Simulated scan of single mutants.
Amino acid sequence: MAAAQTPTLRQKRLGAELRKLRERSGLSSTAAAAEIGVPQARISMIEGGRYRVSAERVRAMARVYTCGDSDLVEALAGLTGGRSRGWWDEYRERLPASFVDVAETEHHATSIRVAVVVAMPGLLQTIDQARATFGQSTPALLPHEIEHRVSFRIKRQEILYREPPVSYTAIVHEAALRMGSGGPRVVRGQLDHLLAMSERDNVTVAVVPFGVADFPASGQPITYVEGPVPQLDTVILDSDYGCDFLDAEAQLMKYRSVLDRMENCALSPKRSRDALRRIAKDV
């Protein structure tokens, strides 16, 4: 396999997980290379995501590392992905790398849970809402840059409509629903869209009303992406400076707990739809 000049997040994750398996086995990279029959530098490149490996090579490495978790091994083999490119690769020269990494991570998700306090969930935004959101960026974006981001965001939403669709839960604080971004027309269209999406079998919209005392407030959007096995879950933290991707076991446990607490503060799906209708009347 050829060296990967610019490793994707998926390639980096595969390398990191293989490194974890090697370290748990007690093998140094030099000893692992000798067992596998490759130069030591190859092991370092693989673990850094800079060298593409085949699914069979991953299985062979797992055998050397005495990994008995067959589900994990097959999930890691699935991360190799051959040499195929995703639709998001078309945007790599036009958008920040973290944008593209988010789309790739979402595409391979089995389910997604997101919590927002002051912004609408990206995968549930209308075109007008997305355009208004990117129009508020600092520093200001040029018109064509805004349109690139809008088209990319809408393209990401296809995972909610494919077969089978991704299971998606959005925990939305009432503050986000009343921010008024884009003006009344945009807000009404966005609230109508949330209502319509909440009726889909694979989408849950859970509204957290004002006045909930135990809500673990955070202005930072949190996205928890489930992979094919729990070890390959990912947390995405969004900020003005880009996205952070977390995958350490302790981090995953922490954010599962935080999201559970947030969801427990939310209204039921039916009462959430009632809340959306009430808020829409106020716009």
Rank of each mutant, 00 (worst) to 15 (best):
P209C: 09
A196F: 00
E249V: 12
Q190I: 04
L14H: 01
E158S: 15
Q11S: 14
A2D: 12
A176P: 07
T66A: 14
E145V: 07
P216Q: 01
P228L: 02
M45T: 12
Y168N: 10
A2N: 11
G183R: 11
A32Q: 04
V64P: 04
H193K: 08
A206S: 14
A275Y: 01
D233P: 12
G183Y: 04
C243W: 04
Q251A: 14
H148T: 03
T126K: 05
A250I: 13
S218T: 15
Q136S: 13
Q190F: 01
H193A: 15
T169W: 08
T204A: 14
A33K: 01
R10F: 02
L259E: 08
F99P: 02
G189S: 08
D240H: 10
R131H: 09
S98V: 11
L194Q: 06
I36S: 05
D69G: 05
E74W: 02
R59Y: 00
P139D: 04
H108E: 14
E35D: 08
E249G: 09
V117Y: 10
H193G: 03
H173M: 05
S167F: 04
Y91E: 07
G211Y: 04
D69V: 07
A2Y: 03
R113D: 00
A75S: 10
D101V: 01
A175I: 02
P96F: 07
I279C: 11
P164W: 00
Q220M: 15
L259I: 14
I279V: 12
T30R: 14
L276F: 12
G219D: 11
A4H: 05
A16I: 11
T138N: 02
E56W: 03
P216Y: 06
A32T: 05
L232A: 06
L142V: 03
P184A: 00
L124C: 10
T6Y: 11
I43Q: 09
L177I: 03
V229P: 06
